[in-house]
Design a protein around this nucleic acid. Structure first.
Length: 288
DNA sequence: CCGGACTCCTGTGCGC
DNA sequence: TGCGCACAGGAGTCCG
């Protein structure tokens, strides 16, 4: 399940192929994965096929931007598309001549040409929790979609994080998962960073001391950076734009390890449900 | 307003 | 071996 590290790694692997490429043609196989950024982050998809220009046809890609788990592709016409991978989404770049092993659930396809080299950018999403937001400008995307979210988890300051956690009565894990608090953290990195900071996921966010929030901030940034360097976590579906899996799952201390020994104290890791999400932590290291 | 529950969707893996 | 069901979860929406 793509979270910030997976999307950041994806951005890095896409940049060489995309930036400077001209969008020759766009194919939409399902219009209901498309949304207008002007309508905000809602989930109601389009019923009718949009104009090619809204999906960057005949323009040149000049930049990729990421906020939290969302990735925007910006063109020289000013228009941008923002891809959200949801649970099972993939953005793949397939150079001309190469073959994509699975072509089912491909909802959107951009044919690209860059200094003679051709290839296809494909949005594939079996579960369709993801989507593609069309914006007339990056400013519109930022204003209508990104500004309603909290700061990006890699750039938020400890002070801002503390202020945000002070504001809510929920558990610290629920707060970390809320994209309005900070953007980019999902179930894996919430559990991993709480383990790193030795904080119990059920603790009420507002009751954490400044020192503990400071520790959580350090842990979160450290875990996210380390995961980006490993190419993210592949559990089942996630692959980068070239189809490569991430190796960070091998470094998970808690996620997916319920019943195993704690890598820090040797205690048994326990599994509970917090904020409707499977949560694994060490009862000995992460006391309430 | 806030927070918890429900919902969307498909592939996987388990138990019988 | 095969069937059916529970489960995985990002995030919008609904409701108390």
């Amino acid at each position: 399940m793509p979270e910030l590290p997976e999307v950041e790694h994806l951005k890095r692997t896409l940049e060489p192929a995309l930036v400077g490429a001209r969008v020759e043609r766009v194919h939409v196989y399902r219009t209901d994965v498309l949304r207008r950024a002007a309508d905000g982050p809602g989930r109601s998809g389009l019923k009718r096929r949009p104009s090619g220009a809204a999906l960057l046809q005949s323009s040149t890609i000049v930049d990729l931007k990421r906020h939290g788990k969302q990735l925007a592709i910006v063109s020289d016409s000013g228009a941008a598309v923002c891809v959200h991978l949801g649970m099972s989404g993939q953005l793949r770049y397939v150079p001309a001549g190469d073959v994509l092993t699975r072509t089912d659930h491909v909802h959107c396809q951009w044919s690209l040409k860059r200094s003679g080299a051709q290839g296809e950018l494909l949005f594939r999403d079996p579960r369709r929790f993801g989507g593609v937001w069309m914006a007339s400008s990056l400013a519109e995307l930022e204003e209508r979609c990104w500004s309603v979210m909290g700061p990006d988890a890699l750039t938020i300051s400890a002070a801002a994080m503390q202020a945000a956690l002070k504001r809510t009565q929920r558990s610290v894990k629920a707060a970390l998962l809320d994209q309005h608090v900070l953007a980019g953290v999902g179930n894996i990195y919430a559990d991993e960073s709480l383990f790193d900071a030795r904080i119990n996921p059920q603790v009420q966010a507002s009751t954490l001391s400044a020192a503990r929030v400071q520790r959580l901030h350090v842990a979160l940034v450290s875990v996210l950076r380390s995961a980006v360097d490993s190419g993210g976590s592949t559990l089942r579906d996630y692959v980068d734009s070239t189809g490569a899996k991430g190796s960070f799952a091998l470094k998970h201390n808690v996620y997916g390890r319920a019943g195993s020994e704690c890598t820090r104290c040797g205690g048994k890791l326990v599994q509970i449900v917090v904020a409707q999400r499977t949560t694994v932590y060490c009862a000995r290291c992460q006391k309430r």
